[in-house]
Amino acid sequence: MNWEVIQSYLPLYEKAALLTLKIGWLGIAFSIILGFVCAIIRHYKIPVLHRIVGIYIELFRNTPLLIQLFFLYFGLPKIGIAIDAEFCGVLGLALLGGAYMAESFRSGLESIEPIQTESALSLGMSRTQTIWHVILPQAISSSVPAFVANIVFLLKETSVFSAISLMDLMFTAKDLIGLYSKTIECLAMLVIFYLIILLPVSIVGSIVEKKLRFAGFGE
């Protein structure tokens, strides 16, 4: 291990990590919104949209992010839709994540017995009030474990961004290995930076999961 090498590479890695974080979290934020909307459309079987969303979910859950990115980044410009690499990264992650979040959130919705809805209705609450005050809070808390798993999964998936020439951690590592062949230092830094990005999420996730889990109310 050569500490001088590590020190001189550090700024490059920091920059790359920030890019990974930026695109990763933006993509995750959008994927949560998208997944939320899609889950509600699927669960409440909103006509037409429900079919379209179903196709979208199956398509993006059954193809790799790398291929999705290639299609979005290199394929779409050929039919006149050109998007820049960063936007493409956010979009790809949001589309992939949206499909996963939707399924997780939907199973949260499905885990709530229909009689909960009935008991709210019997109190004179409207459908919207019932969904808002009774169903959603329970569905969200019961899908927290799956959400956390999805977030970790999506952050890991950001490692393919280098394929569309985003200068993220993988790109930087590969580039530096190619240029100066300080392989061990480069790989060690790669691992450490990913640990810095992922470890806190994984730890905070498991704490939140324990606290928020629906079964945990009143413990």
């Binding site: 970790v152 490692s159 590592a173 590969k174 061990i184 790669l190 990913y194 470890l199 994984s202």
Partner: peptide, 16 residues
């Protein structure tokens, strides 16, 4: 395995 992206593992095995 849970934390490290598969890409990183690939790099470690292939280059490392």
């Amino acid at each position: 395995v849970r934390i490290m992206p598969q890409m990183v593992l690939l790099f470690i095995v292939f280059f490392g």
